[in-house]
Design a protein around this nucleic acid. Structure first.
Lengths: 338, 338
DNA sequence: CACTGGCACTCCTGGACAGGGAGTGCCAAA
DNA sequence: TTTGGCACTCCCTGTCCAGGAGTGCCAGTG
């Protein structure tokens, strides 16, 4: 494949992204300094179409890139355009004002939506890869406890525990000491094993209570694990004239399904720094017309993913840069809070 | 105003809500057993239009209700149609499976969206009207604490506290005892006053630390107070053919602005059990074409509001019934968790 | 051999226009 | 007060036509 043909493809992608209209040979030869005439561009375009990189919505219309064309653009042509210094400062400032972990996630998702003008999705740090920092037991009534678990990513989970017998202050202290001794510093992935043996270690008269506690602990470790996601920027779906072929309906519905969102982000179990899934490359049926750009984040190892969802005709260099930059800053912040 | 005229208005509202098309005199006289001819209905319609209850999109079209018409319908004509027994059971079951307060809110908002086929908004229980049940201090590093506040509505707030001096275990115990002694059981509304005096009560060598702690406490009591809202069912905006005149854009944007949502729900500072704001009655400009049905909820006193947002041409009896029923169940659940 | 200008062809788009239909307002009669 | 009749208005749909943009192909040129 010719160098010039690649340039023609780039021109088509860039113009189409900018104008949202099929781009013709004349426009390409004029607006991009290729040094050849429109007729030559036409020949190249015929080749590119034959090869499946571009297509015509109908005869006598200009060309638009196919998913395969965008893929080539992303892989070989798109230089990532870094954020401006001002943008970087703004990102940094905004994120460093966060008051707790939830706030970091909330701010991140808004920031991504705003920077990219697209729908942003951020996964809350997965519990799986974090470890227990502290467990707190608070007695509410004699037969009711509140269990609060704090992880090293700063996440807090709380649960009510109904216990079978009345507890004294000392009982609660005992239990608190026990669970902390056993679980503090342990990875959540290992927790279920440890929790299973918990009841056996308690004083005989506290066995029943300890096993009720163990049951709830297990739930809160296992059940809610990496379920939560934050979404922002749904309004951006209406930019550029409702880009999704049909209605917004299925997209808006999918955006409220946590399971779907997890698929969207999560399949990137790869540790790749950044993933771009274009059109058909998406496994989620509703997003076959969309592009998803995701990145992992976390202090050292990856504890979650974030990304944006937009039309295949998106500004790839800009979007990729934004996602990458934000993921890095968030990772830094988590690192500091370690 | 004639009884029959009211019946005509009801017929117009019901048919328009059902079909989404202007309704003509013939349809009214045929489908609703009024026992009069179309010509008579036409006379009544002329009157209703004169009085501002209905209007014509253009000459030679049927009539559609105005906001004033809906208002009359709601006030005088709409018998609320209660949920079916099956629905009530489903609501109860779904809500009682919630595992903590956040989960109650999440489930509630989804439930409302599903029951009403509209956009649902639920305010997290306001901190203002709740009181402190327990404060927990966990030392993370010698100069860093985590503060966890548990309120009697079951809400948990966490914050990091950077302290100026290194703390021993005993120091932390001391501080924990102090803040709990002072704040436990106190209403959050009274908390700022108490917090102000906190530093003065600490041992001299802990003064600086106590005042850092007080500062953070104050923030977490005041700042985040009743800021959070949950939204669900945005996809329902696309039902019935994009009901909002213009694009969905401003609506979707408004739904991501917590401030706007609070206005939407909050203005109902009235303790009215249920509020219906139709069209212009809404103070938020973006929702002038919409109807908002809200209800307060809480154990005994109102601690938050919930509601749905939909087109003025909504199924009022059904929607009102659903909002009322859900608000009641949620209140019951909070009551139990007291 | 690659590039270029010219030309006929295709197909979308928007405006103009007419016919059909639904609904109204008014009037005279019961 | 109600009713049937009738003329009128206006929207909606489909058709037609001209204009425009873009293409493919071909023959000519360096």
């Amino acid at each position: 494949m010719d160098d010039r043909k690649l340039e023609v493809l780039r021109a088509i992608v860039e113009d189409y992204v900018a104008t949202q209209e099929p781009v013709g040979s004349k426009a390409v030869s004029q607006r991009h300094a290729l040094g050849v005439s429109a007729a030559t561009v036409r020949n190249d375009m015929a080749y590119l179409e034959e090869a499946g990189y571009i297509q015509q919505p109908h005869t006598s219309a200009g060309r638009i890139p196919t998913a395969k064309g965008y893929r080539l653009f992303v892989d070989r042509l798109g230089k990532i355009k870094p954020l401006s210094a001002a943008e970087r400062r703004a990102v940094h400032r905004f994120l460093s004002e966060a008051i707790d972990l939830d706030d970091v996630v909330t701010r991140t998702v808004r920031l991504l939506a705003q920077l990219t003008h697209q729908v942003a999705v951020v996964q809350y740090p997965s519990l799986n890869r974090s470890s227990v920092r502290h467990l707190e037991l608070v007695s509410l009534t004699p037969t009711r406890l509140m269990l609060v678990m704090i992880t090293d990513t700063g996440r807090v989970e709380q649960r009510y525990v109904e216990v079978p017998a009345e507890l004294t202050e000392d009982d609660v202290l005992d239990l608190r000491r026990l669970v902390n001794e056993q679980l503090q510093g342990k990875a959540l992935a290992d927790a279920p094993r440890i929790i299973a043996g918990l009841a056996g270690l308690a004083r005989p008269e506290l066995r029943a209570t300890a096993s009720a506690l163990a049951r709830v602990l297990l739930e809160s470790v296992v059940a809610r694990t990496e379920e939560r996601v934050a979404v922002a920027g749904a309004a951006n779906l209406t930019r550029n004239g409702n880009f999704f072929a049909g209605s917004l309906r299925p997209i808006l519905e999918a955006l409220e399904e946590e399971v779907v969102l997890m698929q969207l982000l999560g399949r990137a179990d790869s540790n790749a720094l950044l993933t771009v899934r274009i059109g058909d490359e998406n496994e989620v049926a509703d997003f076959r017309e969309a592009t998803v750009v995701t990145a992992g984040y976390g202090p050292g190892s990856v504890v979650g993913h974030m990304g944006v969802l937009g039309p295949t005709r998106m500004d790839y260099p800009g979007t990729i840069a934004a996602v990458r930059a934000v993921a890095r800053y968030v990772s830094e912040i988590l690192e500091q809070n370690r």
